[in-house]
């Protein structure tokens, strides 16, 4: 086996191990400060009030159709840190659509990227959507946000039947 193939195989094994070590579970109150810090670090905009409200609505209410999931290092004590999170819910009849799962937030700690954490979160919420009875999931990404776009594409998402439209209000 030549070195290129060997290196690629080693990289795949390492990523598989890392993904296996990730534990994905529902958010808890103790996770919210970690979520706030992670989001502020990634987006450079601190919005604690927003995340506290999101936790109240998506972490505590209508949990059969709302999913606020966090990823943590499976080898460490539970609650010791959030490596990433994903939030989505089942929405019905908006825009004439039959019920489907919407993902509206996904973030992974920058130092922990490229280790399968985003994929683990995506797989977990996909499973929750399926268990809840829907067979389609959607999200929306800014056209110039190439990394998130490439991530969702790599997970098998394709352009859907809707076009997002907007207007400047003058």
């Amino acid at each position: 086996m030549d070195s290129a193939v060997s290196n690629a195989k080693t990289e795949r094994v390492a990523k598989a191990d890392a993904a296996d070590a990730v534990r994905v579970r529902r958010v808890r109150a103790a996770d919210v400060p970690h979520v706030i810090d992670l989001d502020a670090h990634v987006t450079k905009i601190a919005k604690a009030a927003y995340w506290n409200d999101i936790f109240r609505r998506y972490g505590r209410q209508r949990l059969n159709e709302r999913f606020f999931l966090v990823a943590e290092d499976g080898a460490q004590r539970s609650g010791s840190g959030v490596l990433g999170f994903i939030i989505g819910e089942i929405r019905a009849w908006e825009f004439g659509s039959t019920p489907c799962g919407w993902v509206f937030a996904l973030s992974v700690e920058p130092r922990a990227r490229l280790a399968g954490i985003g994929s683990a979160l995506f797989a977990a919420i996909s499973e929750e959507f399926k268990k809840a009875g829907v067979n389609k999931m959607r999200t929306m990404v800014a056209r110039d946000s190439m990394l998130p776009l490439q991530f969702f594409r790599s997970e098998g998402m394709m352009a859907g039947p809707y076009l997002q439209l907007e207007k400047d209000l003058e």
Binding site: R143, R153, S154, G156
Partner: peptide, 22 residues
Amino acid sequence: DDIARATLGSITIATMRKLVDR
């Protein structure tokens, strides 16, 4: 043009290989 560019820029070769496999 912007939509075409965003679409082509969002598909990596690895993703295309997955689509081929599918």
